[in-house]
Design a protein around this nucleic acid. Structure first.
Lengths: 356, 356
DNA sequence: AGGATATACACAAACGTTTGTGCAGAGACA
DNA sequence: TGTCTCTGCACAAACGTTTGTGTATATCCT
């Protein structure tokens, strides 16, 4: 009366392994392994035979076993704050593309802007024995000790966009200062002179640099920065709107706003339209990120493109370089991408609301 | 004269393994393994000692080894057409959340709407020994043989949103018919009677159902479907605009458009505004997906929310059920989520352009 | 011809887990 | 007292690769 359940209906069929190939061909597993990895000590004829049989039996290498033996997998870990909006999906897109070209798969984790989760994500990735870790920091990450483990395990570590402040790390970033500089200079060229700035969290490198670019551009026109025109926020739509209301309450009116993010400038735009203030005639606007919606608002919003996909690709390239020389002493590397300013209706003086 | 390079400066320190714990405690590795996995045959006292030492030595389990031994990893493979816009990122968000709660990591692959790539992605995931595969089909996938391997390996397979036609599969979908029905009924309730439909690729289940929902709603008002009012497209902004132009050329004018996607309805909106046709007074509009931009166009666009995150979570739950009973005979399961209609300015009769 | 070099392959030990089986002692029951 | 069931643990064989070392022929140089 044996249990009929023993039949295991959906059980996996015995996957063909190197041992099977070896038995079939009457050679050792060594030969199979080396033939498949194109090792020099295997004859061309043997390689052919192995490859042919492998194809015939539909041999699929078990990456897990290889990873275990070699101590690292073909997996690339990515930690980002979130995957909504345009930026991070696009960067991931670039990462995925470059990684798969190099034979790596990508694991994506979200920190949800939380250091705790970021820490756990890093642990998870290390436990999965990833070959490398690509990180864009959570907003409130100020302590970087959870990345020590990555390094000490000899796993290549690359930061992108949001990088640790004052640390020796490998990174790829946008030239945020330059982007902000171009954007602000453009506003100046349109004749604007009292330009406000919606700044982001002060400890994040990207917002520091955007602020600096804004200040530098003002300086080229010999305009002294006015602290009352610089408003910090979390770059959300709501706080952008709030900041705009605050700016409108100033005695000495402004004629332009440069925001370090598109959501904030959108919030500002909505406030202006609600109050019947014309954009760009009364107040010109410029944002940052070239979000999808910048092309469909009315007026369309001027913004700075962050080269998202290039950033992802560059991060992978950097990782590959590091992985290629595992024992090399650490030298800090940084890739800096050049932004591109997209001028749209919200900042072009001498144009009407320009309907389509 | 030994090479000084032998020092391997960045080499990984010997990670602490179960063998180390066993040696330290003077017990066998079996005991360690079972204590850590809370096996019943290990005494409470021993478990405590093991757990304590593990914490002290900062023991990190090697998932790779476990996966190799058990024949499956704690990785969940996901294949989606792309990760731009709102839908897929949000679904992935839901997947990630539910998966990490269950102790799984997620590998995301994009098929870029290409069957070839989709096939390769599936191979890649299987090679990575994923514990399960979650798929939303590429647009041109009509042959489903590349998923046979997944099943035959006993790996749980769940489709979401875009699922194979006429196949016995596990899936989680939105009630697209209901969403389209509600949306169209809403337009009818607003007084619209000649309602056009921008339909998507005919072979995708989602577009079939949205079309059907549209037809069903018309039927409740005893309106005979007019084929000249149904225009197929790829749901892009451009083709949406093109379709709108085509509709405007009709002798018998229409008074509303229900599109199976938000990009298409946005294209339509842009055409209407360019031609000075009032929305919703002259022509009312409704879309599908509840994309971010529906809330910022002017007028704001009525749309159907797809419960993206719920969909991701449901897919993971389904996977977990399947994984829990690996030897159970196949029974088709389908989770159907209820959509939610978001009524906005583009379809509300009796309202002006309603500037926020 | 003698020694070095290159070629072509096999042996077997890892990598770090999990798990079926075996074995001892303890308590329960007849 | 003998049998039975638990409890608590150890042995050792897997899982499918990679790779250092060994060994036999063939080739080359002088």
């Amino acid at each position: 009366m044996g249990s009929p359940k023993k039949q295991t209906p959906g059980a996996a069929p015995p996957a063909v392994s190197m041992a099977d190939l070896a038995r079939e061909l009457g050679v050792s597993m060594t030969t199979i392994s080396r033939a498949l990895s194109d090792h020099h000590s295997i004859g061309a004829a043997t390689k052919q035979r192995v490859l042919k049989l492998a194809k015939k039996l539909n041999y699929q290498p078990n990456h897990l076993a290889a990873a275990l033996r070699k101590g690292q997998s073909r997996l690339l870990g990515v930690v980002v704050p979130y995957i909504e909006g345009k930026f991070f999906p696009s960067v991931i897109q670039g990462i995925e593309q470059a990684a798969s070209k190099a034979g790596f798969s990508v694991i994506v984790c979200q920190s949800h802007e939380d250091v705790q989760l970021e820490r756990r994500n890093v642990e998870t990735l290390l436990n999965a024995q990833v070959a490398g870790v690509l990180v864009s920091l959570a907003r409130n990450t100020q302590d970087y000790h959870h990345f020590d483990k990555v390094r000490s395990r000899g796993v290549p570590l690359v930061f992108f966009d949001r990088i640790p402040a004052g640390e020796q790390v490998n990174s790829v970033v946008l030239n945020d200062r330059e982007g902000a500089f171009q954007s602000t200079r453009h506003l100046l060229e349109q004749g604007c002179r009292r330009i406000a700035h919606l700044a982001g969290p002060a400890h994040l490198n990207i917002y520091q640099h955007r602020r600096q670019g804004y200040l530098d551009a003002l300086a080229t026109y010999s305009i002294a920065p006015d602290e009352s025109l610089i408003i910090r926020s979390d770059m959300s739509l709501e706080e952008g709107a709030q900041a705009m209301r605050q700016l409108l309450a100033l005695a000495n009116p402004i004629d332009a706003v440069f925001a370090a993010g598109d959501s904030a400038i959108l919030g500002a735009l909505q406030v202006l339209k609600a109050q019947g203030i014309r954009v760009p005639q009364d107040i010109a606007l410029a944002g940052f990120s070239n979000e999808f919606f910048t092309a469909i608002t009315e007026p369309q919003l001027t913004s700075v493109d962050q080269r998202c996909e290039e950033m992802g690709q560059a991060a992978v390239r950097l990782f590959l370089e590091l992985a290629a020389t595992p024992d090399a002493p650490f030298v800090q590397r940084q890739v800096v991408l050049q932004p591109e300013l997209f001028v749209r209706e919200s900042s072009r003086q001498g144009e009407g609301v320009g309907l389509g």
